[in-house]
Design a protein around this nucleic acid. Structure first.
Lengths: 355, 355
DNA sequence: GTGAAAGCGCTAACAC
DNA sequence: GTGTTAGCGCTTTCAC
């Protein structure tokens, strides 16, 4: 690392002696209240004369007046903040959701407070408390997904809260996720159609809705064709590559008859790819892989992964739209559980099972 | 999409009639000031009796007192906020930086305001103004990178500001980026060693330091071995896949003698992969590709991309550490330009040029 | 049409 | 050791 210390640098200008509303009022020759009204575009409501209002705004612009949002938020009880909590900002899935919400919020003059729970429910709780005490006007949460009391409490306090992805169907809240069960069924049908009968499942975080609904979808499809669903063939504890690697390794050694993996996340699938390489099983001829969630790299992979795609943009947009309408109307939207369609993209990671 | 409207739902409990500091004080039988001190852990400083302090805290806990951070921020002029502005939250590079900063901030009880400039300097300016008026105590900005006056102004107002990635060496600020020039030189040497003499450059956003330093590194290395650097062989206007696709297509049709591409970003390289497929040039036998920035998918690609890797985590950590120390010490760190080492990872996207 | 003035909930002099 | 009190910058009720 190189480091160039600039020398002789003078820390210029004291924090440009902030212009306050009363400065503007004084300069414009009006009272603070008139200035406030004019600057908030309340001319009509308070029947401020056109000339006065414009003069105030002109002066404010000239002085470079920036209303102190902290003061404004405090006084008006409107922070102009929307809180977003996700388990991992760097995960493309959550990043995409954060992005949609952020863009929507920016459009409506709200700012976004973001936090990373690092997949810890405890952290999630604390971060949410923090956001609540910062007076956020709405929350979008991609929860860790195994506990929900703290979320219910927030919802009940009448603070608009939208859950995304790992939702809680038993709770009456605003929730947005995908049709995981259907997705898994489609995936299972594809594997069955290719002759796979011994399917190993690399699961993510057990107890979360996406994980469990996917398992259930698979189970149902297998049952429907008379194949028993053996929990011995399910392994994994997280939506991570490490979990995928470890569970794939264990499953392959315990059940060499496995001809296909159903990974419940893309990192899980990548782990499986590494594991199978290490164990001399080649994909797809020797081992098929089906996964969840798409990535922009999918088409460029050595073994392009067949996958169940969620419409991440739609999830984010919908979450944003619920939040925005709650903020606009000032009332809680009705609690709903929305589940968006998924699509299956078949790529070469699936081959017919060898007989 | 399915939609289950829960019915008969009662919007319970009014926003739990917020407990204020004076409620706590009253309940504990002390004045607000004592309560404030006790709750802020200033017992020692104000020599509050152990029993009183503990009683106050007990009562506060019992009542579920949550200090109104908006009020606190307003009064104390300490918002406890750090602003982060990036050109695209969903871009893994920026997401990783945002994550490091967020985690560091959370550790120090700060919250993160995040915003997405969408590669627009104008938006960047507005977002920064917004953050300033929200009284952020520090800013981390991955700027669009072609204009810097607005950033200089912020720096001069004595608000701690750290620039990451697309920095401005001519400005005296706190800046963190990679050794782009060196990286490009290493990349160029690798291409030269493989016999490539006609190298097409798929550039990103011209005028930004990473882009221009990389071009310069390439130029220098070519010159050093007596190969002229022809700007005819440089095309592109953005760090995006679209730009990469278009510039690769143009370059290949105008200069079919090109045997290798140097893409200045991974999306640029993906665009080149698509373009070359369309034009019947196969990578790597018929066309080599070298790129910048790594991705977790690199090892799984059909044509694993050779790349110059930046240490994203270090960039983020360093930005965070500068910010944290500025916040802790309450003074501006010295303006520095730090450039972190890069490493070259050679993968199979590079082959010897056909003679 | 405009101004005066009362706080929002909290912190920090200052008083004793 | 603890209480009293004056605001922070703004919005908003009430007065005129």
């Amino acid at each position: 690392m190189t480091q160039n210390n600039h020398s002789g640098h003078v820390m210029a200008m004291e924090a440009s002696s902030t212009i306050t509303l009363s400065d503007v009022a004084q300069a414009a020759g009006v009272s603070v209240s008139t200035a406030s009204r004019a600057l908030n575009g309340l001319d009509a409501k308070y029947r401020i004369s056109r000339s006065t209002a414009e003069e105030v705004r002109r002066v404010a612009g000239e002085l470079g007046f920036r209303p102190n949002q902290a003061a404004r938020a405090f006084r008006s009880q409107r922070s102009g903040l929307v809180g977003v909590v996700v388990p991992d900002i760097a995960n493309p899935f959550f990043a995409a959701i954060a992005r949609e919400v952020t863009l929507a919020a920016e459009q409506h003059q709200y700012s976004i407070l973001i936090a990373d729970s690092q997949e810890s429910t405890l952290r999630e709780q604390n971060l949410l408390q923090e956001f609540v005490s910062r007076q956020v006007e709405a929350l979008v949460v991609c929860p860790v997904g195994v506990e929900c009391q703290h979320l219910v409490a927030i919802h009940q306090s009448n603070l608009p809260l939208v859950l995304v992805d790992r939702v809680f169907p038993q709770c009456e809240m605003m929730q947005v996720t995908s049709q995981h069960r259907t997705g898994a069924q489609l995936a299972a049908e594809l594997l069955l159609a290719n002759g796979h009968r011994h399917i190993g499942v690399l699961q993510g975080l057990p107890g979360t809705l996406p994980n469990d609904e996917r398992l259930q979808g698979l189970r149902e499809t297998l049952h429907s064709v008379g194949i028993p669903f053996d929990s011995e063939f399910v392994d994994g504890n997280n939506f991570t590559e490490v979990s995928g690697y470890e569970s794939a390794t264990r499953l392959l050694s315990r059940h060499p008859e496995i001809t296909a993996f159903f990974a419940l996340s893309t990192p899980n699938a990548l782990g499986a790819l590494r594991a199978s390489a290490g164990l001399g099983r080649s994909v797809p001829d020797d081992l098929s892989i089906m996964t969840f969630d798409d990535s922009p790299f999918a088409d460029f992979m050595r073994i392009p992964l067949s996958t169940v795609c969620q419409d991440v943009q739609k999830l984010g947009e919908q979450a944003a739209s619920i939040v925005v309408s709650a903020l606009r109307d000032g009332k809680m939207p009705p609690p709903t559980l929305q589940q968006f369609q998924v699509t299956v993209v078949q790529r070469s990671s699936i081959e017919s099972a060898r007989l």
